[in-house]
Design a protein around this nucleic acid. Structure first.
Lengths: 164, 164
DNA sequence: TATGGGTAGACAACCAGGTTGTCGACCCCG
DNA sequence: CGGGGTCGACAACCTGGTTGTCTACCCATA
């Protein structure tokens, strides 16, 4: 029996995709930390963006992120602790706690977006803008039948379990 | 202030990479489950491969996976429970429990590798083999300075935390 | 030969981020 | 005015990591 069986080319590709993702995220999160946003995780950025885009209650955030409302509530608690969102009871419906992204939250979102784009620009410089555009387009095509948006993030835990 | 701020193109790319990874893994794990390997996670496949390639003790597996030996021990326990590895005390060093991949373990690894490759082949059919090769080559180039191998997997939890 | 330093693995406590289930408060419709 | 559905809180639990501590063991050296 042969030892050291070659890693399948498919698995290689999966690892490469994961590595690319990790690389970007590590970079952005690290830079974010060094610019006054310690403790933030990429998930926070995505959740914050969802809130800003209208998911301004725990239940709705859970829906957008494809996660239970309890899980969303935990994320919100973290966001609140870090000063990125504020909660206040909706005057027109005493059941709901309305979420509002704070100024610091907006700062973080903006900086995060910028940092992500900077990484992408660096990549473009490295392999050529056309190549990177093509890579992105192909990836979009290959995953277009699945929910590749922010919702996908929610299933990361699950997929990670499966994936790591 | 404008609402609905566009997602940064960089973040978009990160999400695409993650989506691609998830897509492959979901596919493979699902197929594995339907072929007699229920309960296996992609991490198991990677850990098993590391064991087969020589990381045949808990401590060494931890090293390869960039994870604590305790975490490696938990993975090994899962692998053992699923019947993919066996442990026995090393006759020449009573401290170590030597790991051995079982026949079923080899089956799973082989099938997993095949399934990953099949997904890759499907992708090649979808966007063209040259395009996929180029995508892979570019990704490899972009991540070549980081440990893009199996070790990266271990940090998934961490990165996920950061990333989701 | 005794002893002590380093290593392997077991065990416990803990944490993060998910899950489900239950509950009280509340809205709104009939 | 009463009841069904929704919101958020709380509790218990799971998974897959972490650190710290402990015992058993190997090995080198005084």
């Amino acid at each position: 029996m042969m030892r050291l069986m070659a890693r399948s080319s498919g698995a290689e590709l999966a690892l490469l995709l994961l590595g690319g993702f990790q690389s970007m995220v590590d970079d952005v999160v690290g830079e974010l930390a060094s610019r006054g946003h310690e403790g933030v995780r990429a998930s926070h950025e995505f959740a914050l963006r969802a809130i800003e885009e209208g998911a301004d209650t725990a239940t709705e955030l859970g829906r957008r992120l494809s996660v239970s409302k309890q899980a969303a509530a935990k994320t919100i608690a973290a966001l609140e602790r870090l000063g990125y969102v504020e909660r206040e009871t909706d005057p027109s419906d005493a059941r709901v706690k309305r979420l509002r992204v704070t100024a610091r939250g907006h700062d973080m979102m903006t900086l995060g977006a910028t940092l992500f784009t900077e990484v992408r620009d660096r990549w473009a410089a490295q392999i050529g803008a056309e190549q990177l555009d093509a890579l992105e387009a192909h990836l979009a095509q290959l995953t277009k039948n699945r929910s590749a948006g922010t919702e996908g993030l929610a299933r990361l835990g699950e997929d990670l379990g499966e994936a790591i």
